[in-house]
Structures are given as structure tokens and as C-alpha cells.
Design a protein around this nucleic acid. Sequence first.
DNA 1: GTTAGCACTCTGAACCTTCGAGTGCTAACC
DNA 2: GGTTAGCACTCGAAGGTTCAGAGTGCTAAC
Lengths: 343, 343
Amino acid sequence: MGDTLTERSRQILEAIIEDYIKTAEPVGSRSVTRRHGLTLSPATVRNVMSDLEELGFLASPHTSAGRVPTDKAFRFYVDSLLQVRSIDEEQRDEIRRHYRGQGHDVGEILKETSRILSSISHYIGIVVAPRFTANVFRQIEFVKLCGSRILAILVSESGVVQNRIVESNEGIPSEDLVRMSNYLNNLLKGLTISEVKNRILQEMESDKVRYDELMSRALKLSELTLDEPDAEVFIEGQVNILEQPEFADVDKMKEIFRAFEEKGQLITLLDRCMDAERVNIFIGAENFLNRMNRLSVITAPYASGRNTLGVLGVIGPTRMGYDRVIPIVDYTARMLSELLGSG
Amino acid sequence: MGDTLTERSRQILEAIIEDYIKTAEPVGSRSVTRRHGLTLSPATVRNVMSDLEELGFLASPHTSAGRVPTDKAFRFYVDSLLQVRSIDEEQRDEIRRHYRGQGHDVGEILKETSRILSSISHYIGIVVAPRFTANVFRQIEFVKLCGSRILAILVSESGVVQNRIVESNEGIPSEDLVRMSNYLNNLLKGLTISEVKNRILQEMESDKVRYDELMSRALKLSELTLDEPDAEVFIEGQVNILEQPEFADVDKMKEIFRAFEEKGQLITLLDRCMDAERVNIFIGAENFLNRMNRLSVITAPYASGRNTLGVLGVIGPTRMGYDRVIPIVDYTARMLSELLGSG
DNA sequence: GTTAGCACTCTGAACCTTCGAGTGCTAACC
DNA sequence: GGTTAGCACTCGAAGGTTCAGAGTGCTAAC
């Protein structure tokens, strides 16, 4: 459908988009001829631009103010015009360098990743922590705290840890706790967490458990532990967006920051990219968060082995430098996979 | 020194401060007489205001624009004029309600706490996660991940968990890992984390360890695990600050958000309140973060038993409603202590 | 010591003008 | 028929002017 465009229209559209990405300002017919080596007069360009507006690729803020690419134009640009470069040597090294200094706490790594994404892209970096459900069970441990509190620690294959304090009304002796975790570790070894949940329900119904109090307690405890908290998101570099001229307005800024406070929506958006092969792009209003209708999101999943763990990405203005940012997101995702994966 | 003020000056100063807290605008002599039941003419008030300016309690943005309380005035207000109310029934219930719905993951609780602080105060809620060093060692566990990776999990008395992945060049069999953790758990039981560190160094020097490879490996592993990452801070409700009229200016907003990006500075500030008995207040420039010179911070430590774990607080504009926020911070700190403490 | 009166200052809003960039249309050109 | 020059027109941004309102400081009277 977009392919009804002639070669010349495409060139002009591309020129406009690139100009707009650079300047954040409506592009006029003259600047297109000037900045680009086109041997056309402004008048001709104007005609073409008028057609492009008709087709929904351009919009004019008001009659005398040049034109601005629409979401549709950016979509077309990303799909058909954009040549994704491979990542800059320099940027690659920078990413590497950031990771090198890192300790090995998983949470820290994720946070650092969002920092990397933000500082190299100059936009907002975002990382959704691995969902437990997508993971393979490795081990469960119970630690007795004071009184009747028990700390349950759940470890997945990739080293993600989830811990919570559970209250058990009766005190359970430490030896029993050890036995309980042995029992569970045996029972659940190698299952994915979602399988684990079913398995626990099954097991609770079985006769051998129904009459063994220790086992049934163990199952109950593990059930409590598994009940997953909201996914964690690391967002870094929100200030960067304030540098963008199109948000130099108090109300728009508020709007954006409010959107970021509701992390739930963000998570839903990013979750949808879990199954994507590689890089995924949402342009402007495509992301369905109407508060973010001037922002675009570039995401990529990260994995451990063949197991997708989570999603990371960059949020920037719709007019961001896609050619520059896409490889950054892609490469960072691969690095993170490597770090968390079965190296 | 501030006590050279006459009773009347104090009343007027208080009126001005309260007016300014309400309106965020310079206060003129007429509004003082009008809003307050003072039986004085504006002219008299003007004289007093002039004196107060001389003393450094008031400042005038320009000749014809009323006066604004200085940091010094707010300090005086908080120290001498303010009657801290006890917490609102309603707010107390609201805090309780928030906690009730909560799971028991420690991280989640802390995050929810900062959310509570923010949503009830309408300012910014902030919670510094417990530093490990301030904690009592409870248990260490090693979990074998794929390859040569080992996940080390460190648990403190209060249920705070720290985990990190350590790389050991030689594969260690699981049984050995269990033995190692038994050895360490025994060795380190009941010590605070800072004592633990010394103990490990001592032990590494001792003869019995020097020739036992298992033990010495165990110690090395534990050393790696203990090396503490940066303290974690939970900040919530940054948008609230944008509602404040005095920050309805793009540059000031940027300034503030930048200050929040550098969490290190915030942590240093809050760390200084660890030893405070109860509520602590930094007004305006007193917080030494010059980027935050129009903000005030109200903090309170939270504890488990007699052991101070961390600090939480509220950041708001210097003209915030101290009488309303102080009890909120205080009460929340006590609730959190209760939740984490040895109930 | 307190107050009324008054001249003075400063800001912010409203309004106007001007300038420049850009458009769309028409008519001429290749 | 596509391309271009020319021209009238539109709109917003920037700067200047005016005006009203709020507030001050001073002086003189109470």
C-alpha cells in the first residue's frame, strides 16, 4: 500500500524525516532542496509534499510552518527506508566497559543494563526483570527468622532469586525446614515455574501427602512463595527526555512522567515483546499508552539459552535516531543474555 | 539568637510562613492583617516585616512583591513555632490499609513503603534499603548454577537477602557446597556483618584453614559475597513535585530530576540520619545538595529491635506542610519497623 | 509606638506591529 | 505533462507599549 510511492517521493520523504529527526522542527520545501543534493525546485517539492500529506505521511501544524512526519511516516521509514547500521565499535566497547566493572548481583546487572541503555542512547533505558514464570526451577530454601517467620528463597536456573517472608502460625524446627526443602527440591527439579505450580496442586491432592503433615506444610509454604509479585522494571535516564525540544513544555513533561509512574502499563506493553525474535519497534501511538503518544519504544528480548527471560529497550521521542539506537538495543540484549545465560 | 524576636514578630512571621505554605506566593502586609485576626494595620506589619528582613527571616524577590520566608525562617518555624500534631486517624488507617494488601517480599515492602509515603504526603517518598553492614548475619547458602557459576545467597537476621553470582574457575561439587555453607554458618553465626568481614580475614590467616582447601575456598567465596553493592533506594512520586507551582518552570524541573538521578548523593544525605533518634529535618540548602536547594527532606530511621536498619522519608518543597508530613513520616517508620522487626 | 496617606516601583497581562518562513495557486516554460 | 518562477496570503514568534494592580517605604499626624 505504501508502495504506490514513486522513487522520488520516497527520497523526499526520507529527507524530510531525517531533517526532522535532526532538528525537531517542521521541515519546509526549501530546506529539503537545500540540505539534500536534489536537483529539484522548492515548488516541485511542495507538490510532492502536498501529495504525501494527502497520503497521511505528513502533517502541517498550521498553514505556514513546513511539515512534520506522522507516525505512519516513521513506520514506513523504519520498515522500508531505514538501513540499520551495525553497531559502532566505540559504542560496543562502551557497553562492554560498563559491564566489566560490574559485580554479579543479578538485580545490579539489570539496573546497570538500563543505565547503559540510557547513557549510550541518550534516551530512556528500560529493563523488565525476568518473570519467574518463564524460568526453570532450580532450588528452594527455607531460613528460619525470629519467631514464626520463615524466609523462603526461590532460585531459578538462571540465577534469579525471589524471596519472601512467610508467616507460619506454628514454629517449625530447622531440621524440618531442611527436610521440607529437600523434599521440594526433589519433587520440582527441572520443571518450569508454571509447571511447578501445577505440580504442587497435583501433589497436594495425592494420598501420600494428605496424611504427611510435613509434606503438606512444605507444599503450602512453596505455594505462598511462588505467588509472584509484580514484575520489576528498571527505568533509567528519564531526564534525557527533558532535553528533547519537543517536550520543553511543562504540561507535556508532566504527562510523560505520569506515564512512567504507572509501570503496570509499561510492563504490559513490554510483555507483548517477549515472544519476538529480535528487535521490536512501537512508534508513537502504536504503543497504546495514549500518554506516550509522542514517544517510541524499541525493544528486544533477552534470554538464557533458549529460554526467553525478559525484555529490555529504549524509549525515546518518536523522532529518535532509529538507525543509531536499534543496534544498541540489539547488542545490549545479546550481551545481557550472555551474562545471564549458561555462558 | 532567634529569640530576640518579640511575641508579635513571631506571630507575624508565623502568619507569613503559613500563608506562604498555602499559596506559594510572596506575602504582602495586607494579607497578613486580613487573613489573620491581628488588630494591626498593614503599615505596622510592614515595619515588622522590614525588621524581619533585616534579621534574615524574610526576603523580597523585588521591591513591589511581598516577602518570602527564607530557609532560616523555616528552620525557626520547625524548631520553635511548629506544633506537630499527632497523625490523622484517617491517614493512619490509610497507611495500614496499604500494608495489609502487601505480600511479604522484603523488597516489595520497601517499595510499597515509598509509595505510601508519596501518596499520603503528596510529595516524594523515599526509602533506603537496609544496609547489610548494619545487620546481623543469619545464614549463607550456595546454589550451583550451570557451569562454574555459583549463586551465593546471604540472609540477615531481619530477612534481608543479598545474592550474587560468583564465578569459580574450578567446578565444585554440590556436596562440597553444602559442607562449605555449614562451615561458614557455624563460624559466623550471630555476628554483625562488619564483624563477619573481620572474622573471615582472621580465619583465612589461621593454620587450620591454610591447609584445608575446602575451607579456604569457602572463605574466599563468602568474601566475594559480602562485598556490598550500592545501597538501594526506592523513590516514588516524583511527579508530585511537578504539581508545586514553584517548579512550574522547565529548567527548575530538569534541575530537580537530575538531582534525583544521582542517587549516590541522596544516599549520603540519608545515611547521616541513620543514628538520629527520630524524625530529622533538612531545610532547603541545609541538605548540601545544591541542586535541591528549594526542597526539604524529612527523614526517620526504621529499625528491627534495637538495630537501626535504614532510613525513610519524604522530600517536598521547602514550603511543605511540615505539621502534616512529620507525623506521617514518623508513623510510617514505626509501622515499617514493626513489619520487619522481630514482631 | 501606631497609623493614614501618598508617591514610587515593579510585574504581568493584553494588545499591537513587524518580520520571516512557508504555503498554494496560477501561468509560463521545456 | 511535469517543472518552475512569481506572487499573494497566512500564521506564529518576537518585541514593544500600555495599563492596572499589588506592594513598598517614607513622612507626617495621631
